[in-house]
Design a binder for these strands. Sequence first.
DNA 1: ACTATGTCCTGCGAGC
DNA 2: TGCTCGCAGGACATAG
Length: 283
Amino acid sequence: MPELPEVETVANGVHARVAGQRIVRVWTSGKPQTFKTPEAEIAEALTGSAIDSVRRVGKTIVMTVRCKNKPTEFLIHLGMTGRLLVSQSDVPIPPHTHAILTLADGREVRFIDPRRFGRLSIHRAVVSSGQRTTDNGQPTSYTGPGREPLAISLDDFVALFRNRKTPIKAALLNQSLLHGVGNIYADESLFSAGIRPRRQAGRLTRDELTRLRKALIDVLRHAIKLGGSSVSDYVDADGVRGFFQLQHKVYMRTGEPCLVCGTPIKRITLAGRGTHFCPNCQR
DNA sequence: ACTATGTCCTGCGAGC
DNA sequence: TGCTCGCAGGACATAG
């Protein structure tokens, strides 16, 4: 499933391929749950505009487009099985394609999502009580619900979990605290930090949280370097699979020996998610 | 204000 | 072989 490293890989790949291109036509599938913003509104916002940039915020891909000098942000959340591909128009359209942006040079940005947990929307600036949202009068750009795991300071990281009774794994998955962390990297970073997923977030020591933050940053950076994890059917902007899944230490390794101590990896369900850990290395 | 749980959706693999 | 069934999970709604 696409988490921070996968989304970053896709966003960077799409940016490199389409930045500066004009969108000449927009097609959408009509599957209502895919569209958080009505399809007609998305088509209207994107058609005729030029793509400024494509970047990642949390697990969301933010495509900034410009029409008559007015910037608009197109948000693409890949959900579980979403893909964002840049294809030549003669490449057959895969099943479960929900949106196609046709570019001026004929190529197509395609959003494909079999399980339909992905979401497409237009981000509009939130303007409250007549106030301008930024100094220059531009709409506020999308920042996501939580903090960036790769940018947060240690003090802020520690403060996020203070007084929380929920298990640390559930807290890591909570996008309004940190955004971008999903099931794979929650399990992997907890293993690397030697912390059991069920530990109460608010009871972790500063030392443990220091280790966890470092583990999380290291594992995310490493995964980005390898192009992300290809589990489920994640692929990058060209349809190429990532390689980080070959380096998972605990995720989906139930019963297999821990790579550090040999103890069989245990699997429990936590926050409704499969959770994998080494009962010996993680305390 | 938190926390926990159910729901969406399709593909895949296990089991018979 | 071909079928059914259960499971996978990110975000959100709802309940406690």
